[in-house]
Nucleic acid binder design. Structure first.
Lengths: 244, 244
DNA sequence: TCAAAAGTGTTGGTATTACACCCATGT
DNA sequence: ACATGGGTGTAATACCAACACTTTTGA
């Protein structure tokens, strides 16, 4: 057991990525043999917190090790601290032993990160870390209590996206209004009227049209927009309002 | 050091009480002598988590030990895990030593509880636990990082009260509309128009008028209302809407 | 010329704001 | 009788929901 870590406190990250098509979560493959059978489970990326490291720093470290990204949107979600949270399946315990982890109690602090998959040239599967992007629609039963953590992350995303400019973290710097609308539709699970959506966006001053259009599209090219952090910071009264 | 606790994980509770006049926080007096001088600091109620106890259970235990109350509204807020969060003042460290606490790192999970002070016959100062109710307007500089935790709790209260029926946790079972309005005004720091406020409440079906009036008041007696959890559960679409 | 998505306005209904007076009670 | 807070309606405005056609491009 690594002496540099607090043995009972970990950080797990729900990293949500978007590629203009689907929302996906970054998961780690856990391969093991248990009672003669081979298992391939998926789990959230996470690690124990080091003694000399703030918990936020631990989350950033995990994220950077996995994706190579700094300056990602990252926010603490909440702690999960049930006594038996690591003991969903017998092989969960076996796995903890196999990585020289004390078969003990670990309280985890869940974080939630947003990345735009088109920005990073990340393959679907990253062999060095056994990490893969799994569409949120297709998430299977995961190790430990990690499904619950992801459910919580999705709930948080749905709530926060209505009051904070989170969506832009998932989009390229330049995006079209149709792309923005589709993202909101995917996150919130509702469809919006195109005209009303655009009216709504038009009154959000931090979403600014730029003088650039799509090229090489087989239809009328759409105008690109950007999110302006500067404008956002000076114009927000109390919060973003995106209760479409 | 108690062997029954996880030495690096604690729970701290921000217990907010309301007595139809003021919001107050329950704080614990910490008396100590440091470098020949006597200090009386205040801190949040909290304790280390036991090995065999869920973190939510730890929060309930702390709350019950302090107030004798079960079934209080209690919700996890977030974890505070900076390396030096317990070392605001030199005497903070000294105090940790004095209670046989390893001078080490403790990650705390903050909870937030709401109680109605008229329901519990709680005196302002509870000698057995050194606990006292301090109006939120008068909170001094506290031990450790506890001011930050309270600030976060107040922010959470302001956000949540707009979308969830939290206010009723702070009021007696039967309350008048003026009492409800005053509470919202205190929490949100704004004033509302009486007629518009009542129109808004009238369309929230889970706030129901009952056939009972104030007695012994030197003015027209006000009608009492109740919050109906049943009605709330079946009628809420997605969330309470209290964006007055 | 066709397919595909971009872009754009109007209307009816609903919700929000602002505002002032009479009522029921205890003293 | 008076002081105190309770209780009520309306009109002007802003916001929201529903709805269909023209435009620009590449193939």
């Amino acid at each position: 057991m690594d002496p540099n870590v607090i043995p009972h406190v970990s950080v797990d990250c729900v990293v949500l990525g978007y590629n203009l098509e689907n929302l996906a979560v970054l998961l780690i493959e856990r391969r093991m043999i248990y009672q003669g059978q081979e298992y391939l489970d998926l789990k959230l990326p996470g690690d124990l917190v080091r003694w000399d490291e703030d918990i936020d720093a631990a989350a950033h470290r995990i994220l950077q090790d996995l994706t190579g990204l700094r300056n990602v949107y990252l926010k603490q979600m909440q702690a999960f601290g049930e006594v038996n949270r690591l003991k969903r399946e017998p092989r969960d315990l076996e796995w903890l032993r196999s990585i020289d982890h004390p078969e003990e109690r670990v309280i985890t602090i869940a974080y939630f990160a947003l990345v735009n998959l088109d920005q990073i040239e990340s393959p679907n599967y990253i062999p060095t870390t056994n990490a893969r992007w799994v569409p949120v629609k297709d998430i299977p039963t995961l190790a430990f209590d990690h499904n619950r953590i992801i459910d919580k992350a999705m709930e948080m995303l749905r709530n926060e996206v209505k009051r904070n400019p989170l969506a832009f973290e998932l989009l390229p710097k330049k995006f079209t209004l149709t792309q923005l609308q589709k993202l909101y539709e995917i996150i919130l699970g509702t469809l919006f009227d195109k005209r009303n959506f655009r009216k709504k966006i038009a009154q959000i001053s931090c979403v600014v049209p730029i003088n650039e259009k799509q090229i090489n599209v087989p239809h009328k090219p759409a105008r690109y927009y950007m999110f302006s952090q500067d404008v956002y910071e000076v114009t927000r009264k109390d919060s973003f309002d995106f209760t479409v």
